[in-house]
Design a protein around this nucleic acid. Structure first.
Lengths: 206, 206
DNA sequence: AGAAAACGGTAACAAATGTCACATATTGGC
DNA sequence: GCCAATATGTGACATTTGTTACCGTTTTCT
């Protein structure tokens, strides 16, 4: 396992070894729920390969996308929750086949004490997530659905490095926290404006 | 200055001394803007007395309340922003006469290295803010305005330990990210339902 | 007291989004 | 090929929120 190439921060081979030594890996298939709302957190996850999407869910069954966790990153909510023996406030789902290294909380504390670089890595991630959350607040507070939808499509395409998206309207609606018909309606409108081309399970961005 | 009684975490008198030694204090009047969006951050603020409200603003002039910073707490966004030489993504305004201790970023790094308790304090605050932000996401994504409005009033009353709120509809509208007429309309409705009693600059919660 | 500013009430309307009902199209399993 | 499941299209309508306009009341300033 080449953690060196996966983790994005600069660290010594020692941290590498310790992480693998202290932790254990698990693999998840696309769609697997990695962490459920209100679950207790005993270990912090580091994504080795694949990616995770983190959602906030309502008391009903509506949910909304917060951000993605990519290879080399960790779930910062888990980290803080774990540090303070709290439960998770979010739900994490594998976007694709994903391999995760779980490092027990108590070991994490040791690492922080011994390796300042590791702490810096944590801070950096925190900062990133915080800003992403602010973007979400911005979007749902001030932007209209059509703009959010287009942003969503562009972002997904960018990740795939591809202008064709394989996804259902239903799925999009869930991530944006709205209903399927609304997404279908807006997509049709966008198609008529020449922004996209639609197909079954498929959206082509122009 | 009795920092001991103000800061909520347990720390040694040494940290107390260092904070005051390294930092400088400034006082702000109600309504003063402490930090503007896109301003550079060179020092992290610790609220000694009073309180601050933190808002996210749109490109237009619409804005929305994120959370409050009370005495003994710090602005975590400033902290991370400062650590990575970033600009602020939020706007901070004094809610009342407020005294703030500014500690330069480079000194903060020294404190973290030397005093693990201080680090724990930072993490705790981060966690708190993150959850508050999640609550905001929840509210604007899933709740209707009337519910958000009632929550807002209840929260304010709780802070004041009082069931009478001195505030204008305009002000409420700004914090909720909507228009004055909308707030007036909903408040009137709530009054008819017997939830509140209205007066000029005044809302009494039942 | 008189003028100006701030605050709130209300109506009428527009726009955005949500909801329901049902039709049609596509796919995969058998 | 046929059926069932899944995905999408679309109309009609309800609800929520935003917008504009205007008025009366209360406060503040001078």
């Amino acid at each position: 396992m080449e953690l060196d190439k996966i983790l994005e921060f600069k660290y010594t081979p020692e941290i590498n070894e310790k992480l693998i030594d202290y932790g254990f890996t698990k693999t998840f298939a696309e769609g697997d729920v990695i962490l459920n709302e209100n679950a207790y957190i005993k270990a912090i996850p580091i994504v080795m390969s694949g990616s995770i999407r983190v959602m906030r869910t309502d008391d009903d069954d509506r949910e909304i996308l917060l951000y993605y966790i990519k290879a080399g990153e960790s779930c910062i909510m888990s980290f803080l929750g774990g540090m303070h023996h709290d439960t998770s406030k979010v739900k994490a789902i594998a976007e694709e086949p994903t391999e995760i290294l779980f490092v027990p909380i108590d070991k994490v504390n040791i690492l922080i004490k011994d390796y300042p670089e590791w702490l810096d890595y944590i801070f950096r991630l925190y900062h990133k997530r915080f800003e992403e959350l602010l973007d979400v607040v911005n979007a749902i507070a001030f932007k209209k659905l059509d703009e959010r939808l287009l942003d969503f499509i562009k972002k997904k395409c960018q990740i795939n490095d591809n202008n064709t998206l394989v996804i259902t309207h239903e799925h999009i609606a869930n991530e944006l926290g709205t209903a399927r018909v609304v997404v279908s309606r807006l997509l049709k409108q966008m198609e008529q404006e020449g922004l996209v081309t639609l197909g079954r399970n498929k959206i082509i961005l122009h």
